[in-house]
């Protein structure tokens, strides 16, 4: 871990790419889901893939995660090619799937033990659950958890193998504002500990406060890639003006102010 942090520090300014995607294309029969896209994810950042449903975000992620075959193009993850070293990639990434379930009839501790076996690492369930503040739910079943707890547990399973990169596919969809902000904090902590985070989301406010850089995907193409700040500045420079005067707070701030910050367990 320490060596890793030093590396982050050294390369942090130089923006060392940890994921390189080059001319990636994926066709389903006649339908082209991903059309010749290229981008890089830098080590130690939170990278957001944004775009409407069906834009190709999940397909792109699953190709990088080695879960789906590509049609053409090149993808390198931490120096490993997805064509030749899929197994090496699986060992250094953590994956949270959209809407994935967990093995039935097992409690959280037992699920963590199962994943320890699958990753071939030795960790106690409690130390993993502690990272996501779920130790009091160790004996609970996954389906008994609230939406926010489910997402936190999913993230715990992605951290078991001390991954270099974790992939989170719409982790905050369906969560209430408190749970969502709590999850942002967790994701930032993971990034601060040196893990690169790749995330997809439909919420632009979320991408704005959470992501270091974002890429907009539409119709299988990347239509823009930059930091949220730069995107907003560029839009304003082009003469864009909001119809309604922006205030220094929004309705969600009101919600949080009225209902409190502490997390409700559903």
């Amino acid at each position: 871990m320490q060596i890793h942090q030093i590396r982050c520090y050294i390369y942090g300014m130089a923006k060392q790419p940890i994921i390189t995607v080059n001319n990636l294309t994926k066709n389903y029969g006649d339908f082209a889901a991903v059309k010749c896209i290229s981008f890089e994810v830098y080590e130690g950042e939170i990278f957001g893939l944004l775009g409407p449903n069906g834009a190709g975000k999940t397909t792109t992620l699953e190709i990088i995660e080695t879960l789906r075959d590509k049609t053409s193009g090149e993808v390198t993850v931490d120096g490993f090619s997805i064509d030749k070293d899929a197994d090496s990639i699986k060992k250094i990434i953590g994956v949270q799937l959209q809407a994935a379930g967990y093995y039935p009839n097992l409690n959280l501790s037992e699920l963590i033990s199962l994943f320890c076996g699958l990753y071939g690492v030795t960790k106690t369930p409690m130390e993993m659950l502690e990272k996501v503040a779920l130790t009091d739910k160790a004996k609970a079943k996954y389906k008994e958890l609230s939406g926010g707890q489910k997402q936190r547990f999913s993230i715990a399973t992605t951290l078991i193998n001390n991954p270099r990169i974790i992939f989170l596919d719409e982790p905050t969809t369906g969560l209430d504002p408190q749970a969502r902000r709590n999850l942002w904090d967790l994701i930032r902590e993971i990034r601060d500990a040196g893990t690169t985070v790749v995330i997809t989301t439909h919420y632009m406010d979320e991408a704005e406060v959470l992501c270091d850089r974002v890429a907009f995907v539409d119709g299988g193409h990347i239509v823009g890639i930059d930091t949220p700040d730069h995107f907003i500045d560029k839009l304003l420079e082009s003469g864009f003006e909001r119809k309604k005067q922006v205030k220094d707070a929004n309705l969600e701030d009101v919600f949080i102010n009225l209902t409190g910050k502490e997390w409700r367990e559903g």
């Binding site: 995660e65 879960l67 799937l97 994935a100 379930g101 967990y102 093995y103």
Partner: peptide, 17 residues
């Protein structure tokens, strides 16, 4: 069938198993 439909197997495939 339940492991397949609930994507448990897919999640397994993201591990080195």
């Amino acid at each position: 069938i339940s492991l397949r439909l609930t994507l448990v197997i897919k999640r397994f495939f993201a591990t080195p198993v």
